[in-house]
Simulated assay, not measured.
Amino acid sequence: MTDALLDVRLDGAVAHLELMRSAKRNALNDALIDSLDTAFASLGDEIRAVVLCAAGPHFCAGLDLAENSRRAPVDVLRTSQRWHQVFHRIQFSSRPVVAVLQGAVIGGGLELALAAHVRIAANDTFFQLPEAQRGIFVGGGASVRVARVIGPDRMTEMMLTGRRYDAQDGHRLGLAHYLAEPDEGRRMAAELAARVAQNAPLSNWAAINAVPRIHDMSMSDGLFTESVTAALMQSGDDAKEGMHAFLNGERR
């Protein structure tokens, strides 16, 4: 699965995916999006969690403008929908994704980061949506994913002004869940990924797939869906084994 744009390394139940366009600040072009899609689609059942990281000083500077500056509207539409498809695969698979962020997390890079479920930001990380300054609009899901984290009002201001949030601000707002020293992010990500890989697969699937969908529902529908999901989960063998271990003072 490894290619020139994306390095894939397997370590037990955890897959480590590394963006390899450091000379371009890991900007996302069509080929890298295709590589991400192929990698996530190709992971075997033995892979229970993913670490997503990037080579060089920056996680991802967003859309590769050199490739996209002269596209016709219909081609921009298709590119946007392709990003939606791939980021949807990342977010709604059965595998938790832990992203390691550093340096620039800009535009499409922020959209990619927010498709992950756990985000670790190095202290030099900064977040930005500069699309308005470039005469374009977000197209990889930011109007949904970013707005849900920081709110549409704050996102609008972020886009209008080109405001840059540092790692501490991003952590406070929920763009990152953990802060780390630049050389500690990958170690922390590997530990977290190994931990969540030990969860029951169906529990991880439910956390990833049920919670965001319940968020879209009315309160009544959400509570009903929660009850159905809880009933499904608690009747499974993994739940029975986990509760038995807990009641008997065992560690899993």
Rank of each mutant, 00 (worst) to 15 (best):
A72W: 01
H177K: 05
A200S: 15
R195E: 05
Q128Y: 01
S22E: 13
A113R: 04
G174S: 07
N204R: 05
F126H: 13
L6R: 09
A194H: 10
R213L: 15
Q133K: 14
N68R: 13
A142M: 09
Q168T: 13
D216Q: 12
V8Q: 10
A194R: 15
A31K: 13
S94G: 12
A54F: 03
E157K: 14
R164V: 15
L17E: 03
T79D: 05
A190K: 08
A200D: 13
G170D: 11
A197M: 04
M155S: 01
G162P: 05
D221A: 10
L112T: 07
R251V: 15
G242D: 05
G135T: 11
A41P: 04
E191A: 12
A147T: 07
R187D: 14
N248W: 03
D216T: 12
K240G: 01
G12K: 04
D11P: 02
G162V: 07
Q168A: 15
A230P: 00
N29G: 15
V100L: 06
G108Q: 03
L65H: 10
A193Y: 13
R172F: 13
L65C: 03
A13K: 11
F137K: 09
E191L: 11
I106P: 05
G174E: 11
L129Y: 02
V211I: 14
V86R: 02
V50C: 06
R163V: 03
N123M: 14
R9H: 10
S218E: 14
E157C: 04
A142K: 01
D3K: 14
T38H: 13
L28W: 07
A99L: 03
A210H: 02
A230R: 15
C53F: 01
V8I: 12
S69F: 08
D169E: 15
E184G: 02
P212T: 11
M233T: 05
I208A: 09
R148A: 12
G56Q: 09
A200M: 07
